[in-house]
């Protein structure tokens, strides 16, 4: 196995600033996420988590530097590299006028699946995520938790090797959060690398085996939960978080 093949995501010397010069700047950011990891990116509001996720998924283009997925550079590969990853945005990114089955049919096709594969995966995912009974109901009638599950189902329909999740459990009840975390653990066990951002520090404990604390476009600490707490002599992740990022409001 080559060195490049060891990493699901490689960010090399990334420089980025928004055109209007607002928001966070990245100055020579480096990040390597090994294959099979459950990587969690945690940080306060405005730290640059969503911007970094947008750069890793090709939604934003950096001024310089390189982002590679499974050894393939994102800017140079056009749309083909998009087959490798799935993306679950923070917003409900689907058509509210359609049913979950209709949404999955459309996004399955756009993810490169055949008609048969799409149908098979739709049935499977609706079953796993508890949406089989409402498969023919328009999504706009769903609760927030159900919409989160539809959002997740669309992101994983093509069984991506790397899955980016931007706060996938925001605004859901304990049951839905539990179901989503369990499903993500199952996906990871099947070989999917997870790249995850959240405000919910408790999810770091439940889900992530590799944690990065991120602030002002910089990784300020990285490791597994236990080693991070040991290194910074903290008894909880929250204490560690406040210790490293401060107690002032960020937005």
């Amino acid at each position: 196995m080559g060195v490049a093949d060891q990493y699901a995501v490689e960010v090399n010397n990334l420089n980025f600033r928004y055109q209007e010069n607002s928001g966070v700047n990245f100055n020579g950011l480096n990040l390597k996420i090994p294959k099979g990891e459950r990587f969690g990116l945690f940080g306060p509001n405005g730290a640059g988590k969503t911007t970094l996720m947008s750069l890793m998924t090709g939604l934003l283009t950096a001024q310089s530097g390189d982002v590679s997925l499974l050894g393939q550079s994102i800017p140079g590969k056009g749309k083909q590299v998009n087959k490798l990853f799935g993306f679950v945005p923070q917003d409900f990114s689907f058509y509210q006028e359609l049913t979950p089955a209709e949404n999955l049919e459309f996004f399955g096709a756009w993810s490169g699946l055949s008609k048969i594969q799409t149908r098979q995966r739709t049935d499977e995912l609706l079953q796993i995520l508890g949406l089989a009974d409402v498969r023919n109901k328009q999504v706009q009638q769903f609760s927030g938790g159900m919409k989160r599950r539809v959002n997740l189902a669309i992101g994983v329909i093509h069984q991506p090797k790397v899955l980016f999740l931007d706060e996938p459990t925001v605004g859901v009840d304990v049951q839905t959060r539990h179901a989503i975390i369990n499903y993500l653990l199952q996906l990871n066990a099947e070989g999917t690398t997870l790249v995850y951002t959240s405000h919910q520090l408790s999810e770091a404990e439940d889900l992530c085996n590799d944690i990065a604390l991120f602030d002002q476009g910089t990784i300020i600490a990285r490791g597994d939960l236990q080693s991070l707490m040991n290194d910074h002599q903290q008894e909880s992740l929250e204490g560690l978080f406040l210790n490293l990022t401060g107690k002032n409001f960020r937005d």
């Binding site: 090709g58 990114s93 756009w110 992101g155």
Partner: peptide, 17 residues
Amino acid sequence: VSGSFIRLKTLPTDFTV
């Protein structure tokens, strides 16, 4: 303006379709 467009941009299909 809805998020669906953001997701479409991350999929391996050109928007010309």
